[in-house]
Design a protein around this nucleic acid. Structure first.
Lengths: 224, 224
DNA sequence: TGATTATAATAGTGTTGCTATCTTTTATGT
DNA sequence: ACATAAAAGATAGCAACACTATTATAATCA
């Protein structure tokens, strides 16, 4: 399935829209790969410039700093996830079936969807798993929230919460369950790989299916 | 209840044991307050030295860098939490009651326990809520895990998982549920304060009781 | 052709993270 | 009380990082 929409993100996240130029697209492409490879703490614009054969100053014309670049990339993921959920559940009537599709998408999004040529979806998902909580765990969170930087996340949670309420209209914690299902997906991929005693998911082939099964088990207990 | 044990932590976390000297205790005390105040990204040893009227070089004699200092403080929290759970559930027979006590401790630990004079437990809990995931979301996670830096977390999860299995011996995800209950506590305090649309917890008085109620609701559905 | 825009190239500044060295203070043992 | 060692303070310095400024060059378009 080819996705030919250009992902629409909050303009406050960048100085100059990286999707509108070749250099901008190369910044997106190489920053995803480099952050996935060396980690966000070790990542900086000088290394990125070397990697993509450009200059530090050129990258600063697109993004104010590396924190906003990370926020941009993670917002991209949230928006892309949200978009995939919408199109995959569009014609589905049964809300239980919808939630199953949502969970399947949380877990397997990067494998199923070859989307935009300058974005390596698998690396982007790894980046989200390893680094995304740093986006909103800062002292500037309230200010950035006021600027709408986390709207893509909130919209995704809001649409999942709606489905939960379709299944069980009096469920008292639809938003908390929605955000928790999403966070759990990523957390337990990470734990399985690095801190296996904090989970019951094996670090083996079939890991994704195991996580999916666990999430389905949780919602069946909570919503049946 | 006064706690007069000295918290025992992995010696790999420090160069010189900060609990064994006055300066070391002042480092613990002021680093908790300063990180809580300005956030981990803005925090550094120079600012800490100014704050506590000492010098950068002196602090470097105790901790290799700010990341290991954060790991030390969060490990302190994990160990302290684990200790409180042990003593509070020690004489309790009913595993359901035990799990309720554990959840109550997750939520209210900082209010109930005036413990060690140089640790502000309330600030420490805030710090854990805002910064603790950064401790293990780094490229060095596997190496640090091999050195045993996250044992306190794993032990806490392991003891909670045991209680879960006492309640329901065939429950398939005891470790995942244990870590998730802990993570959920802190995540939803943070969401209620900063990203309220990601939760159903109000940012009001009684917030802690609301979170406790939510966790009790989740375990009742999952374990009854 | 000339004007505008995007990118590259280079340099520079202040801060951070960390190490080294030396001096002063404090604690310990005889 | 004095000698010795250990702890802490004071100061300097360096390499890397985060970011800004300036100028040059190439591409685009009126």
């Amino acid at each position: 399935m080819a996705v030919n929409v250009s992902i629409s993100l909050n303009p406050g996240l960048y100085i100059k829209d990286p999707q509108q130029s070749e250099l901008g697209k190369r910044i997106i492409k190489h920053s995803i790969l480099l952050i996935d490879e060396i980690g966000f703490e070790q990542f900086n614009f000088k290394k990125l410039a070397e990697e993509m054969k450009s200059t530090e100053a050129s990258i600063y014309r697109y993004f104010e700093n590396k924190h906003l670049l990370l926020t941009y990339l993670v917002s991209w993921y949230w928006e892309w996830l949200n978009y995939m959920i919408q199109i995959k559940t569009f014609n589905v009537e049964d809300p239980k079936k919808k939630l199953e599709i949502i969970i399947h998408t949380f877990v397997l999004i990067s494998e199923e969807n070859p989307a935009i040529d300058y974005v390596n979806e698998s690396s982007l998902h790894n980046l989200v798993i390893a680094e995304s909580t740093k986006v909103y765990h800062t002292k500037g969170v309230d200010e950035e929230n006021n600027k709408g930087f986390f709207l893509n996340y909130k919209e995704m949670v809001s649409s999942v919460a709606e489905v939960i309420l379709e299944i069980k209209p009096n469920f008292p914690y639809p938003h908390a369950l929605a955000s928790n299902l999403f966070e759990m997906t990523n957390t337990h991929f990470y734990f399985a790989d690095h801190l296996p005693r904090l989970t019951d998911i094996d670090n083996k082939a079939g890991q994704k299916e195991e996580v999916e099964k666990m999430l389905l088990f949780f919602i069946s207990k909570l919503l049946d």
